[in-house]
Design a binder for these strands. Structure first.
Lengths: 236, 236
DNA sequence: TTTTCCAGTTAACAAGACCTTAACTTTAAT
DNA sequence: ATTAAAGTTAAGGTCTTGTTAACTGGAAAA
């Protein structure tokens, strides 16, 4: 079951981009352009998260946020134009869960969205609510290599393995695509973010570091194999 | 099931060329010449990819892109005339997935088209969405020879076969055209690319290497047979 | 604030894999 | 037998990848 996100943004171009990129990441998205529609949709859809612009016609974002806070605990991610609005937004007055100052990168937004969803999933589990069975895969196991997503911890030979943040993300991505050849470009887009500007050789370096940590012999890798002319493939 | 591509280009000559070349590569192609027709076709066809010119009569490419973004996640490849439009095209404002600046080579276009399709196929798989079966040909099998496109790996007699990048590409091309006689020129154009400058005998050498690896007796080939005066034919 | 540290990126070089060419040989058609 | 096409091979240059180290910016510590 894909998670549902409600996007509330009056500027059509930005609304569409947000919507498109969230969809591309597998979310079900509803996008509306004003405060009244936002309230309607939020009540009808019960989305898992709301991305809410502060500046809105009809009813502004402040107000929408305050109203929704009373009715539901859905995490709200605020989009603000100016730094000096932040205090009010995340403070007691409005109570958004997180915020982003324009201009922001899509990568940033995606990261925040996912962080919020992860957090609220955790909270739900904590209180024994909803099954959490389907969409939350707890562990990925490959023999003596176990990735615990909840703990954000990797165990190799029963010992915790220390990975840098990006190494961890890369490993998880590989693990989720076991057996598939992944090009450097695809890896960059999915792990680093769609707006990453830079050299695809960056992937090589991270692969090297990962190999040093998870391969028995990093010069003869058997888990992350090179597909010459193609990219890399994680064998598990 | 061949993948469907919608071409939106008002200049008839270019439209036909695009259309012709995409069809030659096995795609189902619909080509239209203005923005309104583009929207209609996109909605009716649900193509797997859209090639969209920026300059269009009726409704321009920017607008078409924005509208379609709301309705579908189909990857859009933009054709632009000037470099300085690029930022808008791929940035937040329009949100195309990729772009090509005119003039471009047909090879470039083909490469981008295939890259986009590969990516969206992977994304679909990733989220377990429909279709994974239909449009994604995962394997090509010929008796004891199996080409796994996802893994980018070839298995012969249950053993992985080590192929060089170009050998692999050539074999896949042969496999996709089983039983058809393919001239060296055609092979060069399709596998090496439109702008390859060089001797067609290059193909011979690669065929030789392939034969050594996939034929029981390379001097009496039965899979890749020579068509004297014509080219080669892959029998499977 | 300044300093220190660290993750991430890029640059540079080495090693090796790969591609093309070209020359020579063999085969098939006339 | 002659000749054009295809087979075969190896040398040379080019491209990829591995690897390390320097650089950068931001976070943490002082």
């Amino acid at each position: 079951m894909p998670e549902t996100i409600l996007v509330v943004e009056d500027e059509p171009a930005l609304r569409d981009t947000l919507s498109y990129n969230l969809k591309k990441d597998g979310f079900t998205v509803e996008a509306v352009g004003d405060g009244r529609a936002a309230l309607d949709s939020a009540r009808k859809l019960k989305p898992d998260l709301i991305v809410l612009d502060l500046m809105l016609p009809e009813i502004d974002g402040f107000e929408v946020c305050r109203i929704l806070r009373k009715e539901m605990t859905t995490p709200i991610l605020m989009l603000t134009a100016r730094d000096d609005e932040i205090d009010r937004v995340v403070g007691l007055e409005v109570g958004a869960d997180d915020y982003l100052t324009k201009p922001f990168s899509m990568r940033e937004l995606m990261a925040r969205v996912k962080a919020q969803l992860r957090r609220s999933r955790l909270l739900r589990e904590e209180f024994g609510k909803a099954a959490a069975a389907s969409s939350t895969q707890e562990k990925l196991s490959f023999g003596n290599l176990v990735i615990n997503l909840t703990r954000r911890e990797v165990i190799l030979n029963d010992e915790p393995l220390s990975l840098k943040p990006q190494e961890y993300e890369l490993l998880v991505f590989f693990a989720e695509h076991q057996g598939k050849m992944l090009s450097r470009e695809f890896i960059l887009e999915r792990v680093w973010g769609w707006d990453f500007i830079g050299d695809s050789r960056t992937v090589d370096v991270h692969v090297r570091w990962l190999r040093q940590k998870i391969e028995k012999d990093a010069s003869q890798p058997i888990r992350i194999v090179t597909v010459r002319g193609g990219g890399y493939r994680f064998e598990g």
